[in-house]
């Protein structure tokens, strides 16, 4: 709330002054209607619109970083709010017929407000395209913020599953191959034990950036769970997928992550595996992929005595 006030002080002060001024002018020039003259339907409609508009303004200011696009949206919504506010005042205060400025106050801000709002939304659209370009390789076809991973800037297994259902259908109808690559860090729990879980989290975050850099623009990277990542490769056969998996494995091995505490380099290694979709659905394909990884993992089990 305090950052909201700090960032948008001028806008909010102007809005507050304007609403007050309108109220004072109305009170000075007119007289208050008795309750018997109130039209409840109009009060509900106009007052409700005014309140909703104020909510939109609050949400926009609260959820967006300050900047040009936010200013357009805020000014637009501010003017719309003002015009509805004056409209609402009419319901409670009767002005003599000789006064015309109230019509101006009510009607003039609205078109300007709507114009500014349109401009803001247009630039918002441009901005969203730019952000989507930044999300490339981490998001495809649809967005669902509830499926964002809480640790890395990737999507979760559930997103992958939903996406895979669509992608498999598309691949089948276009008769194109589709492959998945899985990557799992070897002995990741050691990092957590020796360097702390916070360092382990940083490794996963860094790794998600590193893996994205190694992908083609049409690929999709998700975090399956823990230290296990899955890449979906559209239009890709098994051979090419194997090559890509190997690229990822090498990039992890050559990645020189430095621990925050003493700047020590952590040596990372990963196991990879890949499968090509045959007649699978998303669930069975993921299961097959996981089994392929289990085979690819070096025989790690402690020897029995």
């Amino acid at each position: 709330m305090t950052t909201l006030l700090k960032l948008h002080r001028l806008k909010l002060v102007v809005l507050l002054l304007a609403t007050n001024l309108a109220l004072l002018l109305h009170l000075a020039a007119g007289h208050i209607k008795p309750m018997s003259e109130w039209v409840w339907l109009d009060i509900l409609g106009e007052g409700g619109s005014t309140l909703l508009c104020l909510t939109w303004l609050g949400l926009v200011l609260k959820s967006r970083p300050a900047g040009r696009v936010t200013s357009f949206l805020a000014m637009g919504l501010g003017l719309v709010f003002f015009s509805w506010w004056v409209d609402t005042l009419d319901e409670f205060i009767r002005l003599p017929d000789s006064i015309v400025w109230d019509h101006w106050m009510e009607s003039a801000p609205m078109p300007f407000g709507l114009l500014l709002l349109t401009l803001g939304i247009y630039h918002w659209h441009r901005e969203q395209l730019a952000i989507s370009a930044q999300m490339e390789k981490r998001e495809r076809l649809f967005r669902e913020h509830r499926l964002f991973d809480s640790l890395t800037p990737l999507n979760t297994a559930e997103y992958l599953r939903q996406h895979l259902d669509q992608a498999l259908c598309q691949a089948r109808s276009a008769q194109q191959p589709l492959s998945l690559v899985i990557l799992d860090l070897d002995n990741f729990s050691r990092i957590n034990h020796l360097h702390g879980h916070a360092e382990g989290d940083r490794v996963l975050q860094a790794l998600s950036q590193l893996l994205v850099l190694n992908l083609r623009h049409q690929d999709l990277l998700c975090r399956l769970a823990g230290d296990r990542f899955v890449v979906m490769l559209p239009h890709t056969g098994e051979r090419q997928a194997q090559q890509l998996a190997e690229d990822l494995r090498l990039s992890v091995e050559h990645f020189a992550h430095k621990a925050r505490a003493h700047g020590e380099r952590l040596q990372l290694r990963a196991s990879v595996a890949c499968v090509m979709a045959l007649q699978d659905d998303a669930e069975s394909l993921l299961q097959r992929l996981n089994q392929a990884l289990a085979h690819a993992k070096p025989a790690l089990y402690a020897r029995s005595a």
Binding site: D184, A225, R228, L286, N290
Partner: peptide, 13 residues
């Protein structure tokens, strides 16, 4: 469960 991958990763194959 639907999030079966959590079990694979954390409890083994």
């Amino acid at each position: 469960p639907r999030q079966v991958e959590q079990y694979w990763v954390n409890l083994g194959e």
